[in-house]
Design a protein around this nucleic acid. Structure first.
Lengths: 206, 206
DNA sequence: ATCAAGTCTGAAACTTGTTCTAGATTAGCG
DNA sequence: CGCTAATCTAGAACAAGTTTCAGACTTGAT
């Protein structure tokens, strides 16, 4: 039995250099088109042409438009996580730091609202066939939040709070993207839900 | 100037009896198809045929598939609100009553998971052109939650908490529908977020 | 270097949401 | 009743996601 076979990733055969390059080109084209016009502007034919790849190949790399956009989101999330690591949030309480982190991410999304639209819509529209990828995004988000809280060993209660924060984050983004909530409102919602964290800690303020 | 012209609804001309009947048939067909196979199973041609209406007419009544499914959700929400009114939740605290109400709604959705899938996916996938309708659904949900809390005049803080609860509700439903969270997990998330309500009241328990 | 297996390409076909058109029906009004 | 505008119908047409296929190109192993 091979040593590196069945652990985390479901046996992704390593890509050759050219394949890696194709994958990058595709993700880049996807993000670029998304930045222009959001979810609808990411048309599979255009992505294929833009990244100089045949349509069939595009579908071999990403089995659906939603898969592609979720992968695009994973890609962007990594950037973001790196950026956030450099300047950790400065609040006194965990709740403040998480809220600050999320607001920073929110401001980044505001700079590319169309891209945000494409990624978030894909994420929430994803059906079961994309669950593993969506779950990966979710885990990455969890890590970012736990980082901001500064926790090594969260209690189950704290994990619940984090999950609720993620729910609020996604849903608040959607209401903002669809023009049903203002930026200020999203801020309030994030701050409100972050107060849940205080409930799970001995030292709350106020 | 006419007396009843421009108030709440944007001048919906009253429907004739046959039109009202058509509308009902369409919504019924939509719910029926959704119950079978979820979002994908609601195909506009089938809805049209099923409700004995031409495709063009269907589009005159509901300008897109998402509009149709959101209207279907409005319809179902009304039923649910009526049902909930009959047996108000019995918990001691507002948080308990809201959690109980939402879990009751959740159990109702579990009975028709495909229908739930179609409605919730439509709701979160909706773009700006559906905002008024989605907003209406959101208002209706707010009313249900405030009902459960037993509040006449909620404070702005309490309204924030309610918004966060709605966010969590929608997003938790999505994770459940896409198989990424168990029923138990949704329950925990709902109970967790409902504790936010205690933060906005003088008399918390514990 | 050569062969087999796997990958990529270009193009057509298929599916389903959406739009359009021409003619039939219906509703409201004189 | 008879007219006119609005509505409805059947069906074609179009758009974009997805699938399929035959042939060309790469890759890895011998």
């Amino acid at each position: 039995m091979p040593a590196e076979a069945s652990s985390s990733r479901p046996a992704t055969p390593p890509l050759t250099e050219r394949q890696e390059a194709r994958r990058r080109r595709i993700l880049h084209a996807s993000a670029q088109l998304a930045s222009r016009g959001g979810f609808d502007a990411v048309q599979m034919r255009e992505v294929a042409e833009s990244s100089q790849v045949a349509l069939g190949t595009l579908y071999r790399y990403f089995p659906s438009k939603v898969h592609l956009l979720v992968a695009t989101m994973q890609d962007q999330l990594e950037h973001m996580h790196g950026t956030l690591r450099k300047k950790p949030p400065a609040g006194d309480t965990a709740a403040e730091r998480v809220a600050e982190t999320l607001m920073r991410a929110f401001r980044a999304l505001q700079r590319e609202p169309h891209l945000a639209d494409a990624m978030v819509r894909a994420l929430t529209f994803a059906d079961r066939s994309v669950s593993p990828e969506v779950d990966q995004v979710s885990r990455q988000t969890t890590v970012i939040i736990l980082d901001a809280m500064g926790l090594e060993h969260p209690t189950p209660e704290q994990l619940s709070a984090v999950r609720v924060i993620e729910h609020t984050w996604h849903s608040a983004l959607i209401t903002w993207l669809s023009g049903r909530a203002s930026i200020a409102q999203v801020k309030i919602d994030i701050e409100t839900v972050c107060r849940l964290i205080d409930l799970t800690e001995p030292e709350g303020r106020t």
